[in-house]
Design a protein around this nucleic acid. Structure first.
Lengths: 137, 137
DNA sequence: ACTTGACCTGTGTCTTAGACACAGGTCTAA
DNA sequence: TTAGACCTGTGTCTAAGACACAGGTCAAGT
């Protein structure tokens, strides 16, 4: 299997496959013409990688998991501990986005009723510079 | 004002100031010793930049806004249109994070009750490979 | 056999918004 | 004068691929 076949068959892009290959997560054989040739084992490996990415693991995480499992060791404890970390991060980012979203939409609606002003020496845009979030009581 | 003074006075880092300077958003004078020297105008410029970043504008957005306002034009219409775009993006990302968070925490709790398994030829980690989200009815 | 054109390849560079490393310069106190 | 603390600009690094590009491959048509 060549890059494009593999990527299409699993619904990803050739660039992604190449990226994982560059990182050493996939180890295709070289075919006669110099093209990379992926075996069935690589296919299931990629399938695993995509599932893990989909669950929020980083590529570095996945590298670690694959390494562990190549020793014959069960990667399950590692997997559980990693997802705990990632979930915490995601939670933090989620809260940050929540706050940002609120701020932005409050700004947007506030600004729709405000007039345009030309910039001055110490004011670029009064919308931004004078924006203050209305605190909910 | 030198880099460190400026950054501290506005609660950011020297690297951030240097970054904006590199991009041309701040234009310090050179002082005798070769250090960058920031005027009061730069201070309010930086203040503006930080406020805008805080509201979710990208650095590229800010560059655009600053350019517009340097012509004497009011940047307000641009600002409104940009934040609309950013808000939409944020909304998308927010929904994505929401879904991801759900998936992850569902995986985590599912996995806590599952046993470890050693890897096989076509299975790296059964937790990940067999994970299926339980659909809420 | 030759050519055209479609598709494919590997490699190198680009992206965000700064963080970090580092060799060296500046400045203050002793 | 010299030590030490602090500061500087510049260059490199990050994540996860996307994109550009010069060139190779291959089947169909001539």
């Amino acid at each position: 299997m060549k890059v494009a076949e593999l990527s299409k068959s699993l619904g990803t892009t050739a660039d992604t496959v190449r990226y994982y290959t560059r990182l050493g997560l996939l180890k295709p054989a070289k075919s006669v013409n110099g093209y990379k040739s992926y075996s069935n084992k690589e296919v299931s490996r990629l399938k695993f990688i995509l599932s893990a990415r989909n669950l929020g693991f980083s590529v570095a995480d996945i590298k670690q998991i694959l390494n562990e499992s190549e020793d014959g060791t069960s990667a399950c404890p590692l997997v559980r501990s990693l997802i705990k970390e990632r979930l915490e991060e995601t939670e933090k980012q989620f809260q940050a986005m929540l706050a940002l979203r609120g701020k932005m939409s409050s700004a947007l609606s506030q600004w729709e009723e405000m007039e345009d002003k030309a910039p001055t020496a110490n004011m670029v845009c009064h919308l931004i510079e004078n924006f203050e979030q209305i605190k909910k009581a």
